[in-house]
Design a protein around this nucleic acid. Structure first.
Lengths: 243, 243
DNA sequence: CGAAGCCTTGATGCGCCTCAACGTACGTGG
DNA sequence: CCACGTACGTTGAGGCGCATCAAGGCTTCG
């Protein structure tokens, strides 16, 4: 099943319409997209594979065509923090855009992925030639900055319970797939992953999920979470569940 | 003394060399700077005054010529979080750059300030006309994104003691002024301000400063902090002070 | 079938918040 | 210039949220 999905992408790989519907390339002419595509390289990355690592020379930037990528920061003490998840259609590893020459985090395939990449050297000319691409990209960076600031506020003011609930809701909204039972987060995610997104421990996440499952807010299993009662989970996220 | 400083600025206000040494305008021709300046408005803001507020329509962007500006986020529950301090020479309130139409935070004069502002409508044409300005600006946004990510990692992995020490060191490096006793943070900053930068309470900050003062790492008074032993404070920040 | 990875659940302790009370410096108007 | 009010700072006592330590069950994969 997964293979079939990938084959479709490879068949379309030279077709500009592949890009034209993606947010970063909105508003760019088809001919220009063809030109861009001709400079790109496509690659598969198996689940768990590192696409690049924190500190590597940033000699390319990337577009995720299919799959999910986890962006992970490593602290000097070896702890991991998940900065964000990249969904298909998103740019990532765009160190050039922000004037860096090394990547600030690891990018790891959360599932098997298909990725396009361009040499970093063409970044400057690309943003200059396609102003709408530049605008789209910087708007995206802006929204990531916002996300980061919001997360700081969250970490500073909310309890673990609220942060974990928010994180699940965000994932469900971003990448959720509707099932009979509710909204399933569409890639394997462990208790530990969730704890690394929220600044807590896997133990606490496990306890929270157990408790929420008892109350019917979520259903969860091995590397799998389904939000069944978004409403009530949202109340937990906003702290309104305390008496 | 402060007045004299301001007068100097007003005398120079029409001089392009005022901008030419500032990072955002590095590499732009003097004539172009004159043009830019002719579109700008200058204003004084007394200490405590709000330059703009979270949620306001973003109809201008700003350059801080003199003073210090505190960027503050307000949570739905009314708590305040200090996102960053702006030093003189920095751009701020550049919502246009990241595709926003409202400001994401309050900007408050931490001391009496002199500020240039441009109408937001000229942002697009400005970045297109002056590519180096665009590059400089987006590099700065990138470094703010980095800062934010680093702060998330800090909040997720470090204890309060370390975060407060880091915050003081960062302030001392950014805006420190050398005195006989050590490096003085060059604007009024309260225990509460520090707590709002680090996600803790003014009580805990007070206790930490008292303890550090006893150990000779800092000297502090009302709205005033001097780092006397940066070395040892850095060890606290990195957690190496625990036995 | 064994090993490794993921998950659960209990017991314990401590870091830091919360609540409380009081001291001290500033500035503002009489 | 003094008196008062307000903002800022200190310090103690108590308790809670969550990390930490510990042990064991379950699934998946080679």
């Amino acid at each position: 099943m997964r293979l079939r999905k990938l084959e479709v992408f490879f068949l379309k790989i030279l077709d500009a319409t592949l890009l034209s519907n993606l947010p970063p390339f909105e508003g760019i002419e088809n001919q220009d997209l063809e030109d861009l595509l001709s400079l790109a390289t496509s690659a598969r990355h198996a689940k768990g594979q590192h696409i690049f690592d924190q500190g590597d020379d940033a000699n390319a930037f990337f577009l995720l065509l299919d799959g999910h990528v986890r962006v992970v920061k490593i602290t000097p003490h070896g702890e991991q923090i998940i900065a964000r998840y990249i969904s298909s259609g998103e740019l990532f590893g765009i160190a050039q855009a922000i004037g860096r020459d090394t990547y600030p985090a690891n990018a790891v395939a959360a599932v098997d992925c298909v990725v396009l990449s361009w040499p970093g050297t063409i970044w400057q000319q690309t943003v200059q030639r396609y102003p709408t691409f530049a605008t789209n990209t910087y708007a995206m960076i802006g929204s990531r900055l916002q996300d980061a600031q919001d997360r700081i506020v969250e970490m500073a003011t909310e309890r673990v319970e609220q942060r974990v609930a928010s994180a699940l809701l965000k994932l469900a909204n971003q990448t959720g797939r509707k099932t009979a039972e509710g909204i399933l987060i569409d890639f394997p995610i462990s208790r530990q992953d969730i704890s690394e997104m929220t600044g807590t421990t896997l133990h606490t996440v496990s306890r929270l999920l157990s408790s929420w499952e008892q109350q019917g807010l979520v259903k969860s299993g091995r590397q799998k979470v389904t939000v069944t009662e978004g409403h009530r989970l949202l109340m937990v996220a906003s702290g309104q569940n305390r008496d």
